[in-house]
């Protein structure tokens, strides 16, 4: 199996890597680029722990081939904070204790950011359905949803 050369942008930086044709973007992020913030919880698109943005679309990186990232813009949890300034969602997750074990947290944050970019004023129901592809087994979702809605309110200037 010969490897494929891929040039892509990850969190604003141009990166190149070699990947096998059947390697996923998640494998590449974690194993080649050492960006281990995206997690593999299922490898079948059911848990959302590997959520990233590819060309401004929220996707499961376990369901994208590394080869497909050629020429694409990829954004991961590692690019969410601006240096030491956390994104408002990251701050609110901490304030609201919206994480327990924290393994689903990167996926939730990436997905929630995508939600607020598309819909700055989601209802609770909209937030819950948007995030239905992100499984959390610890929190019962209550504090996560509160953190997302509170961030939305803050970002709207309320």
């Amino acid at each position: 199996m010969s490897k494929i050369h891929v040039t892509t942008t990850v969190n604003g930086d141009e990166v190149e890597f070699l990947c096998e044709p059947d390697e996923t973007l998640l494998d590449v992020l974690r194993d080649e680029l050492h960006l281990t913030g995206s997690k593999e919880g299922c490898a079948s698109g059911d848990c959302g722990a590997c959520s990233v943005m590819v060309n401004d679309r929220l996707v499961c990186s376990c369901l994208v081939l590394g080869a497909e990232a050629d020429g694409a813009k990829v954004e991961t949890i590692e690019g969410m904070a601006d240096g030491e300034n956390l994104h408002p969602l990251q701050k609110k997750f901490l304030e609201h204790a919206a994480l327990q074990c924290g393994v689903c947290t990167p996926g939730f944050l990436v997905a929630a950011k995508a939600l607020l970019e598309k819909n700055p004023d989601p209802t609770e129901t909209e937030a819950r359905y948007w995030l239905a592809g992100n499984l959390c087994r610890c929190t019962g979702y209550d504090k996560i949803i509160r953190a997302v809605l509170d961030t939305a309110a803050e970002m709207r200037g309320n």
Binding site: T76, Q90, F93, L99, G102, T105, P106
Partner: peptide
């Protein structure tokens, strides 16, 4: 907390 909201936290599969 900060490590867990930024992706820095090292879980079982993150070591190499």
């Amino acid at each position: 907390g900060v490590d867990k909201v930024t992706g820095r936290a090292m879980f079982g599969a993150d070591y190499s």
